[in-house]
């Protein structure tokens, strides 16, 4: 009799908790929950929470020093079914790291678990295809973990210019060359023009941001192939709104030859060791010999 009444109490408590959690999707603290459920006894509340946690319908996490509860979505609950509490803890930490990923060393610090426990949890989670390991671009040996469905952030992959582990110099060069040709053909262009041109040209399937195009253009400016100019809205800029950043072919390219580098000494790696009568000297220099061979 008492059993059934307490069970009913717990069931109502259970529903109340879920209701409250649904009302605050960002999570509700333990204290707030207690305040809202003053009519329910502490034991009933605790039991209800335990049942929900077991069923993976509720998620518990720490926010600062307070415990917080949040409702777990149904699919998520299904996926997490049968996981050990340690596994869950690790899962939550990985989830919190979002697409920046997290390193095992940091997991250990966050969860206070031992290394083997974490390794085991990772193994379980990976087996269920809940998380994945991603190579970090900055450090070839460092692996970070994130949820399986996430796309790694640019911090991890290195951004648009990296394919796999390697910097895609080929891709960057092709893109740079095409952008340069475009500027040379058009005369004056804005960043938007360049972005449209590249997207239309089908050069790449990669989704490039305006930021990426700016990088390419900045690089061309550094190579002195093009130069920046601010639109005045008149004359050559009639089709461009005033004060827009534009690019045009450079009037001052870096010279391809120079008198200094045209002689062997200008490119000589050992010029500073070269003396009149030393081991390296202009009289016996092989670079000179090569140069003056007719």
């Amino acid at each position: 009799m008492e059993d059934s009444s307490s069970r009913a109490l717990i069931a109502t408590a259970l529903n109340r908790i879920l209701d409250i959690c649904r009302g605050t999707p960002e999570g509700v603290s333990n204290i707030a929950l207690g305040e809202q459920m003053q009519d329910v006894s502490l034991t009933a509340r605790a039991q209800a929470i335990n049942i929900l946690l077991q069923k993976h319908q509720l998620q518990v996490f720490k926010h600062g020093d307070t415990l917080m509860y949040k409702e777990q979505s149904r699919e998520e609950a299904g996926r997490l079914k049968g996981l050990q509490p340690e596994d869950l803890l690790v899962y939550q930490v990985i989830q919190a790291a979002k697409n920046d990923g997290i390193w095992t060393r940091d997991m250990k610090r966050e969860t206070n678990l031992q290394q083997p426990q974490i390794a085991k949890a990772i193994k379980n989670l990976e087996a269920r295809k809940l998380i994945k390991a991603v190579q970090c671009i900055n450090n070839k040996t460092k692996k970070v973990y994130m949820l399986a469905e996430l796309k790694p952030s640019e911090k991890i992959t290195g951004g648009a210019w990296y394919s796999g582990q390697e910097f895609d110099a080929e891709f960057v060069n092709v893109l740079k060359e095409q952008c340069l040709q475009y500027v040379l053909k058009e005369g004056i262009v804005t960043l938007e023009h360049v972005a449209n041109f590249v997207r239309k040209s089908g050069l790449t399937k990669e989704e490039l941001h305006t930021r990426n195009f700016k990088q390419i253009m900045d690089m061309l400016v550094l190579d002195a192939e093009i130069e920046e100019i601010i639109s005045t809205g008149t004359g050559a800029f009639t089709s461009i709104p005033p004060d827009t950043l534009c690019f045009r072919p450079s009037s001052n390219r870096i010279p391809e030859t120079s008198a200094f580098t045209n002689v062997p000494c200008g490119l000589c790696p050992v010029l500073h060791q070269c003396t009149d009568d030393g081991l390296i000297s202009p009289k016996t220099c092989i670079y000179f010999q090569e140069w003056l061979k007719f």
């Binding site: 002195a224 870096i254 010279p255 391809e256 030859t257 120079s258 580098t261 200008g266 490119l267």
Partner: peptide, 16 residues
């Protein structure tokens, strides 16, 4: 511009 030309010739595009 002369110095930049020298750097370009000696060390290549990236270094320049």
């Amino acid at each position: 511009s002369e110095v930049e030309g020298i750097v370009l010739q000696r060390y290549g595009r990236e270094s320049c």
